[in-house]
């Protein structure tokens, strides 16, 4: 039950006073409650647990992390360090 994966907010609506969204998880869509993420907008990526969006994915920081990983590899190549063979 703890495996939360990122999904994309497709639409947002109000249901009996609660903010709900349709979220796409790579082709599977689910009804998700936005009560804990009221600022979420259509197109955002969010992590969902038990039908509730609990956090928003920050694109800038995702790209920054990936760039840092790439730089690590670059420096290893520069210094001739051996990659771990698969």
């Amino acid at each position: 039950m703890c495996l939360g994966v990122p999904g994309k907010v497709l639409d947002i609506r109000e249901e009996r006073g609660t903010r709900m969204a349709t979220v796409d998880f790579g082709g599977v869509t689910k009804n998700v409650c936005l009560a804990y993420l009221p600022e979420a907008a259509v197109g955002d990526y969010t992590i969902v647990h038990a039908g509730f969006a609990i956090t928003q994915l920050d694109e800038a920081s995702a790209l920054e992390t990936l760039q840092m990983f790439r730089d690590l590899g670059y420096f290893d190549d520069e210094m001739g360090a051996e990659g771990v063979s698969p």
């Binding site: 994966v5 990122p6 994309k8 998880f25 790579g26 990526y45 994915l57 995702a62 990936l66 990983f69 790439r70 690590l72 590899g73 290893d76 360090a81 051996e82 990659g83 771990v84 698969p86």
Partner: peptide, 18 residues
């Protein structure tokens, strides 16, 4: 899916392992 494939990249995994 966004942020899933990118964070499973085998080349980057190898540089992290190194």
């Amino acid at each position: 899916m966004k942020y899933l494939d990118e964070f499973a990249d085998p080349d980057l995994a190898r540089s992290l392992l190194a």
